[in-house]
Amino acid sequence: MLNRLQKFAVAATLAATAVTIAATAATGTTGVAEPHKSVSTAPEFTGISTWLNSDPLTIQKLRGKVVLVDFWTYTCINCINTLPYVKSWNQKYKDQGLVVVGVHTPEYPFERDTDNVKTAIKRFGITYPVAQDNQYATWRAYDNQYWPAFYLIDKKGQVVYTHFGEGDYAQTEAAIQTLLAQKS
């Protein structure tokens, strides 16, 4: 039998869930976008077993560029749904200083196979660098918990914006444009 405090906690959780569902239905988005609450230095790419479409990259060497780190995996439908936007941003802004880095972090054991990742990259037409994070080292360095997840890093190497899940593409693109317009 639930005591009063437990009943209140259950009711509050259900109410919060209902508000979230209503907001999702109203906006048509399934993700959460927000300025990064505490600006922090972006963690380095660590524990990367393989780099695809690129030589190994470091956050340090990317200073002076705007970097979009996209945590994804090739069988995640939400990740697949974000790819047209990520690919478009890469094409539109790469000559203006944007570097997109896909961090492929597998959800299932078969997604650890580099040949499977290469096949997916080719199938999806991904041309930007992809870091294969099979041991979740970079995932943990970013304290990430979601697929897909965007971390936008300014020219000084600070994480200044995050987005988890699908949606809010115009907001994410506006953040990219704002960062590209800033002086180093």
Rank of each mutant, 00 (worst) to 15 (best):
A18T: 08
T24P: 04
A25R: 13
T27E: 08
T29I: 02
T30E: 07
E34I: 00
H36Q: 12
H36W: 15
K37H: 08
S40L: 09
P43T: 04
E44T: 03
F45V: 03
I48C: 02
I48L: 02
S49F: 07
T50Y: 12
W51M: 10
W51L: 09
N53A: 06
N53D: 10
D55T: 08
D55Y: 09
D55Q: 13
L57Q: 05
L57C: 06
I59R: 11
I59P: 07
I59F: 09
Q60S: 13
Q60L: 03
K61Y: 02
K61I: 00
R63C: 08
G64A: 09
K65M: 03
V66H: 05
V66F: 07
L68W: 04
L68K: 07
D70M: 07
F71L: 05
W72K: 05
C76Q: 11
C76V: 05
I77R: 08
I77G: 11
N78A: 03
C79A: 03
N81V: 04
T82V: 07
T82G: 01
L83I: 00
P84K: 09
Y85K: 07
V86S: 00
V86L: 03
N90L: 03
Q91S: 14
K92L: 08
Y93P: 14
Y93G: 01
Y93C: 04
K94P: 04
D95M: 06
D95C: 07
D95P: 06
D95K: 15
D95A: 13
Q96A: 13
Q96E: 14
G97V: 00
G97P: 05
G97L: 09
L98E: 08
V100W: 13
V100E: 07
G102V: 02
G102K: 14
G102W: 14
G102Q: 11
V103N: 09
T105R: 15
T105P: 10
T105A: 12
P106D: 11
P109F: 02
F110V: 00
F110K: 11
R112T: 15
R112E: 12
R112H: 03
D113M: 03
D113L: 03
V117N: 02
T119M: 15
T119N: 15
A120F: 10
A120V: 09
A120R: 06
K122F: 04
G125R: 12
Y128F: 15
V130T: 12
D133L: 08
D133Y: 14
N134I: 09
N134S: 10
N134T: 03
Q135T: 06
Y136K: 08
A137E: 14
R140A: 09
Q145C: 09
Y146K: 02
Y146W: 13
P148M: 02
P148Q: 04
F150M: 08
L152N: 11
I153K: 09
D154M: 08
K156F: 10
G157A: 04
G157K: 12
